[in-house]
Every structure is written in C-alpha cells, then in structure tokens.
Simulated scan of single mutants.
Amino acid sequence: MSAVQATLEYLQKLPLYKVEKPYWCFLAPKEGFDPDAKRVDNLEFEHHSGITINNIRDLPNKPEIGDCGFEVLSHESKLSRFREGDDITQYRLETEDLLKEALGAVHVKCYDSRLRKNVPFQRSQLDLNDPLLIEGPARGVHNDITYDSGPVVIARYLSEEDQAKYLKDGYRVRIVNTWRTLVPVLEDRPLALCDSRSVDPEDCVAADRIIPNMFGEVYYLTYNPNHKWFWLEKQTPSEPFVFVMYDTKDGSHARFCPHVSFVNPFSRKDATPRESVETRSIVITQE
C-alpha cells in the first residue's frame, strides 16, 4: 500500500477567532457538572476528505526529525502494559535513555506522558493527576507547544541548576514527543504526521489549553491543501515515532510537527482498537 486517502479534522477559519482566542478546558466531572454534556471550549472543527497520507515505508529516503520534523526509531520497550504508577515512571526513564542515544542529547527530562485508547468513555469521576489516566485520541490537527509556550514549559520542568547550565549559548533545547502503539500491529486510528516544511505560519492558530492548576498554549491548524502528510502502515510497538514540538534553534529546519490521528480506510472491521503511549520531553544537545 503506497498511500491512503483519508479525512482529517482541521480548525475552522471563524470570524470568532479574530475577537476571541480559541480555548479548550479539560475539567474533571463533579456534582452538577458533566464535561461530556456541557461544552468547555469554543473550538469548531471541519472535516476535509480526500487528503493523501503517504506511507513512510514506501519512501526511498526515510524522514529525519531535523528535516521534516519527525522520524521513526527502532526500539524495543521493556514495558507493554501500564498497570501501576511505577510503570509510567520506568517508561519515562526509558524514554530519556532512548532520546539521549537517538538525538545525541547531553540531557533529557521526560516531564509528561499520556495513555490513549480509541473506545467510548462513560465515567463519572476523573483524576487528572492519575499517571494511568486513559484518554481518547486528541481532536484536530495540532502541535502541542507554541513559540510562546515553549519557554514556559522549559522553565517549568527544568531545575534551576539545569537552567543555569543549559539555557545559554552552545546548547539547543527541543521539546519532543515520542509516540508508540501498544497493540501488536496498529490499524485502528493511526497517527498522521505533517511535514513542517509544507506548513505556512498563517495556518497555525494559537489556542489556550486549560486544566486544573495549569495553563498552556497549543497550535491548531487550519486547512491548507499544500500540507504533506505521512503515516506508518501497520506500525508496531518497536517502531515509535519521535517528533519535534518546539526548538530554540532558529532557522529553516523543522521546529514543530503538526499531527492528528485518522480513520484508516483500510483498517479491518475487527481490528484491535488503537492503544498508545506518548511522552513529552525536554531534549538538550550541544551545538
């Protein structure tokens, strides 16, 4: 299979966003409040069909994170299921070692992780601080960090000692995502990655993301037919993605990587529902 024609979800180009910044609140349910029933955002998406998503397996030259913003690593994780909080801790440490080797980093701080599963959720309680919390696939083409929120994230999670040591000339700081399927062969809701070189700055719309005790900013993308999309057919757990979300180094190289999951038109009806684990890490290299 060379490529698929699929439907992707983009942020609408609404006049509203000229006067009101897009926002999304992720709040836990409580008595009298059900976030599934009451909207806590002003995001309006639209579906664009017939988008070509190229198969990475068919490319003569494999993508590299410094060029297009993403690449596929070869790595066997020691963890395939997450039943205890310590499993998440160990996976984050494993991720730090992986990124040190793959990107030649002198320091890596894995500060966040997400477990996702493509199944309906019906729950009356939600602990947003639970490292084992399972969420559904994220909506809309997006990049998890903006040029404004990147420095905030770095200052939040790097120790004062590490900031004094690395936040100066001679070091490059990136925030990267690693994304790994937890099913043996992924067919259902795979991840699509956009070549950052095909993105116009005007396609990126900053949006507030609000959770209890924390505030962040992400980019949602509006549709542009020039966007070039890629996926990895029948991805396995030993083929994790790594893609950049923020980069302190100026230049024409990839400094972010829009992404979103999509409905695979060739997925079998009885395919195992997508399960995945992703991490967010601060990666520092010496320049």
Score class of each variant (00 low, 15 high):
W179I: 04
P131E: 12
E202V: 13
S196H: 04
V119G: 08
K168T: 13
L126R: 14
A138K: 03
V119E: 15
G150E: 01
R189K: 13
D144Y: 01
L132G: 10
R189T: 04
L158V: 08
L115K: 08
P201N: 13
N118F: 07
D195G: 04
C204H: 00
P137A: 15
T146D: 02
S196K: 01
E202R: 11
E135W: 06
C194Q: 06
P151A: 11
R180W: 07
L167W: 04
L158E: 02
R209D: 01
I145G: 00
T178D: 03
C204A: 15
A192S: 13
Q125R: 15
A138S: 15
A206W: 01
C204M: 15
P184T: 10
D200L: 13
D127C: 09
N143Y: 02
A138W: 01
E161I: 08
D130M: 11
R180A: 05
R197S: 11
R172M: 09
N143G: 04
L193E: 03
L133H: 10
L167A: 04
E135N: 10
A207H: 01
G170E: 10
I154P: 00
G150W: 01
S124G: 10
L115F: 07
P131I: 10
V153D: 00
F121I: 13
P184K: 14
P151D: 08
L126K: 12
V141F: 00
P120I: 06
A207N: 02
K117T: 08
P184C: 11
I134A: 07
Q163M: 08
V183S: 05
L193Y: 03
G170I: 08
L167D: 05
S159T: 15
Q122M: 09
K168Y: 08
V183T: 13
K117H: 14
G140V: 05
W179S: 01
E135Y: 06
A138P: 03
A138G: 14
A206I: 07
A206P: 02
I210C: 05
V199W: 00
G150F: 00
E135S: 14
D162F: 02
I210N: 05
W179F: 14
L132M: 10
I154A: 05
G140C: 11
I134Y: 02
V141A: 08
Q122D: 12
D169C: 11
S149L: 02
P184S: 15
V185E: 13
D148I: 09
A192H: 03
I134N: 03
T181Q: 05
G140N: 07
D144S: 03
K117V: 07
R180T: 15
N143L: 04
S159G: 12
V205L: 09
